[in-house]
Computed example of a mutant assay.
Amino acid sequence: MGMMDKVKAKLNRGKAEEGARKHRGKIDKGVDTAASTSDEKTQGKYSSQIDTGRDKAKESPDRKQQKDEGTGT
């Protein structure tokens, strides 16, 4: 990967992170909907795993922001 490709990748990642922060509510709603649908389709068989995945998906942007700010572990 050339230097310009690396620069472009960093810029695109920054845009994606900015978009994720800007639309946090919509993303959380989508994650909740996906988790609910998955739980219904599996008839509750994997509820705990689905809940864990949903929680981790929702906290992921917070952990990234804390890491960037230097306040996280």
Results as ranks from 00 to 15, higher is better:
V7N: 05
M3A: 15
K15S: 14
I27Q: 01
I27W: 01
A35K: 01
H23Q: 13
T71F: 03
E59F: 02
N12Y: 11
K29T: 06
T73P: 13
K15V: 13
G44D: 01
K41C: 04
P61L: 00
R54Y: 02
T71W: 04
E18R: 11
K26L: 08
T71G: 02
E40S: 13
P61Q: 03
E40K: 14
M4G: 05
D55Q: 08
K64N: 09
K64Y: 12
G72T: 05
G70C: 03
I27G: 01
D39K: 08
G14W: 04
T33G: 02
K64C: 04
E18S: 13
R21M: 12
D5N: 13
A57H: 00
S60N: 12
T33Q: 12
A35L: 00
K45F: 10
E69F: 05
D55Y: 04
A20R: 06
Q65P: 00
D39Q: 10
M1K: 08
K56F: 07
K10T: 10
K8G: 03
N12F: 13
M3G: 07
R24M: 10
E18F: 15
Y46M: 03
L11P: 05
E17K: 06
S38N: 06
R13W: 08
Q49A: 13
G53E: 02
G19C: 02
S47V: 03
D32G: 03
A34N: 01
S47D: 07
K15C: 08
T42L: 09
K29F: 07
T42G: 03
G19Y: 05
K45D: 09
L11E: 11
D55I: 00
A16Q: 13
M3E: 14
V7P: 00
K8P: 02
Q66W: 08
S48G: 06
K8T: 11
K67E: 14
T42I: 04
M3V: 15
G72W: 05
K45N: 08
A16N: 09
G44H: 03
D28N: 11
M4E: 15
Q66I: 04
T71V: 09
S47L: 04
A16L: 14
D28T: 04
R13C: 06
T42V: 07
E59G: 05
D28P: 01
Q65V: 13
E18I: 12
S48D: 14
D32W: 04
G2Y: 02
S48C: 04
G2M: 02
G72P: 01
G53F: 02
E69G: 04
K15F: 15
K6Q: 15
Q43W: 11
A34H: 00
D28G: 01
I50Y: 00
P61A: 03
P61D: 03
D68K: 14
K41S: 07
Q66E: 15
R13S: 10
Q66P: 01
T37K: 11
K15G: 12
G70S: 03
N12I: 10
